[in-house]
């Protein structure tokens, strides 16, 4: 390696990437959505840091953001916020899981309509 060569750290894994849906487009959408929610959190946390610092000092320097370490209470609150964000974005799985746990089916839904229609 010469002085000017920049080492490139590998960014992808060797091995065929599996897909799970009949249409691989759905897998791409899932991957992009999962990445997007990560980036959304990165923005949200940065804002949280800004807010925390603003509340503390009123004025602050950018390097103070880089150096900011949340105290244990705030770190715990952040984990709660992240889990809430995940629950919101993945709410549809919770919906489905609870349907399954309750035994709700399209037929039981239809039954409810028919039952309520019975006078």
């Amino acid at each position: 390696m010469t002085e000017t060569t920049k080492v490139r750290v590998p960014q992808t894994a060797k091995g065929h990437r599996p897909t799970f849906f009949e249409d691989p487009t759905n897998d791409r959408i899932m991957a992009m959505m999962t990445s997007m929610i990560t980036e959304m959190w990165v923005m949200r946390e940065r804002l949280d840091t800004v807010e925390a610092l603003a509340a503390k000092k009123g004025v602050f320097l950018e390097e103070e953001i880089e150096q900011f370490e949340p105290d244990p209470d705030r770190a715990e609150e952040r984990e709660r916020m992240r889990q809430e964000l995940l629950s919101r974005v993945f709410y549809v799985f919770q919906e489905e899981a609870e349907d399954i746990a309750r035994g709700d089916t399209p037929e039981s839904y239809e039954d409810a309509i028919n039952t309520s229609a019975d006078r």
Binding site: R17, P18, T19, F20, F21, N26, D27, M30, A31, T34, S35, F90, F93
Partner: peptide, 10 residues
Amino acid sequence: YQAHLSIQRA
């Protein structure tokens, strides 16, 4: 399950 595995991989 398809969605679960797809997100887990991502």
